[in-house]
Design a protein around this nucleic acid. Structure first.
Length: 291
DNA sequence: GAGGCGTGGTA
DNA sequence: TTACCAAGCCT
């Protein structure tokens, strides 16, 4: 009976309100769950769904992906955004195939050592795929805990030790319940305790929410500046990579030059793409996705 | 540890 | 329209 004060209500809410997502299906493999977690990093579920289905159809196991060029992963990634994730997922598949017998590791530390897998994703895979007991602390959970426990509208900009400690303190004692709790709190943050207009009337823990009980005081910290995009190197990188993605063959420099006027910025972006391993400069002067 | 890294939907 | 937001990771 050392479960946290919210667990019963949140778990019951999840039972009847969880979305029917394919990576939550009983037959979802650890690999399919890992793929979903990488795709979901900073990307909404509705955009991940079709990409995930296509990816799993083409590469149902790590070995399938590891057998292809990394550029094919980048091409398949299409417009999901942050294409370095595709490169890292390919590198993950290679490492899993060559160093882990083709099986997604179930050990948190080993998962953490794989490319593109940080604290959140390692905990998510260990918990969602293998039913282990780990604190799940993503943007949704951080927001729920900020409101319910700390009594503020938004969590701090960067994750703190206090948040980690809180998430661990709230973790139910047994592994199966803890795993259920993690996905349930995330879902609550995604569907009810949302960033802009939380649906407190539908919240199973509204009666225990410190922020609501305090009258929902407005956020009073420094402005949380969103990232601009127009005119940034990120936009240029996106345009350059799109040219390569949409071409079945290597492209001439002219084709890349055409997508951005500012030569200095364009060259800087292209150099960065090459440096990141997303673009391969060929000996004949043309450019291609990596092999 | 602050900043860089894509893309598109919504208010 | 502009600004914010979306299951983070890496340097």
């Amino acid at each position: 009976m050392s479960d946290n004060p919210y667990s019963t209500a949140v778990l019951a809410w999840y039972e009847s309100n969880a979305r029917d997502l394919p990576w939550r299906a009983p037959d979802a493999t650890p690999w399919s769950i890992l793929v979903s977690e990488i795709m979901l990093q900073q990307t909404p579920v509705v955009r991940v769904l079709p990409a995930w289905r296509a990816w799993m159809e083409r590469w149902p196991t790590p070995a399938h992906l590891a057998g292809e060029a990394s550029g094919e992963a980048v091409r398949m990634w299409n417009r999901l955004g942050y294409p370095r994730r595709a490169l890292r997922l390919h590198a993950c598949a290679v490492a899993i195939t060559e160093e882990h017998g083709g099986r997604v590791p179930d050990d948190h530390a080993t998962l953490l050592s794989l490319p593109g897998i940080g604290a959140y994703t390692a905990a998510a895979v260990a918990s969602f795929a293998y039913g282990q007991r780990h604190a799940i602390l993503d943007t949704n959970v951080r927001r729920v805990l900020a409101r319910a426990e700390t009594g503020v509208q938004y969590p701090p900009k960067t994750q703190t030790k206090a948040e980690t400690a809180l998430a661990e303190a709230l973790l139910p004692p047994t592994a199966p319940v803890a795993a259920r709790w993690g996905v349930a709190v995330m879902e609550l943050g995604a569907l009810v305790c949302t960033a802009r207009t939380p649906a407190c009337a539908s919240c199973p823990i509204a009666g225990q929410c410190a922020w609501r009980l305090a009258g929902k005081p407005a956020y009073d910290g420094p402005p949380r500046r969103g990232q601009t995009y127009e005119g940034t190197d990120r936009q240029v990188r996106g345009r350059l990579l799109a040219v390569l993605r949409d071409s079945a063959h290597p492209v001439a420099k002219d084709a890349l030059d055409a997508v951005w006027d500012d030569r200095v910025q364009r060259e800087r972006a292209l150099d960065a793409l090459v440096s990141d391993g997303l673009v391969d400069p060929l000996d004949d002067g043309r450019y291609a996705l990596p092999s």
